[in-house]
């Protein structure tokens, strides 16, 4: 069973990973975006970690809804609403239980991913975070480690794709040959999940 402490560890580990990788995310965002994905997510997850430390919620659902709200209020751009919606929706699905099973978490995350797809209108293959989210959530029932590996593979697989959503889509064919920064940060989120579970530290 997974408790609030587990989900706090997940968010803290994500904040650390985003902080560590912020410059790489911004580098990836330069040729096909506007060179700020790392700094924007760092601002958001720093706020998440601070909010969770200041007033730690005592249920898994409350941890994720608080994290989602923080991201929506601090990140801006497209990644704020998208990551914010992912966590908030997942948190709402978890309800008020003090502990949730891994199967319940997988179902909740499925609902969160669907909410992201609906908000952004992206489908797999559009060169967005969905390309890492979909394979990750599909592997979640296997293990957190498998989900993290699937997300990383999904992010790498965005390299040859032509972007159809977001700012990179304006480049048309010139967007091919670059790894999508959003899919890359999604891979960090799942690597942190595996890390929080003690399921392999590095993604």
């Amino acid at each position: 069973m997974l408790d609030a402490e587990f989900f706090r560890r997940w968010m803290t580990a994500t904040a650390a990973a985003v902080d560590r990788e912020a410059e790489r995310l911004t580098e990836l965002d330069s040729p096909i975006g506007d060179a700020d994905h790392g700094s924007n997510l760092r601002r958001g997850f720093t706020a998440v970690a601070a909010a969770l430390e200041k007033d730690p919620p005592d249920t898994p659902g409350a941890v994720l809804t608080l994290a989602g709200r923080q991201l929506i209020s601090t990140v801006g751009g497209a990644s704020g609403p998208l990551y914010g919606t992912l966590l908030r929706r997942t948190g709402k699905e978890l309800g008020e239980a003090a502990e949730v099973s891994e199967a319940q978490f997988a179902d909740a995350l499925r609902a969160g991913v669907d909410a992201v797809a609906k908000l952004g209108g992206a489908v797999p293959g559009d060169k967005t975070m969905v390309d890492a989210l979909e394979p990750a959530v599909a592997e979640l029932a296997t293990s957190f480690r498998a989900a993290a590996e699937a997300a990383a593979r999904g992010a790498e697989a965005t390299v040859p794709l032509i972007a159809r959503k977001g700012r990179a889509s304006y480049l048309g064919e010139r967007s091919a040959g670059h790894q999508d920064p959003g899919a890359t940060s999604t891979a960090l989120l799942f690597a942190a999940l595996a890390e929080a579970a003690g399921d392999g530290a590095e993604g």
Partner: peptide, 11 residues
């Protein structure tokens, strides 16, 4: 005004 080249937030 948002951050540089970044949409402002709903708040």
């Amino acid at each position: 005004p948002g951050e540089v080249f970044t949409s402002p937030v709903p708040d």
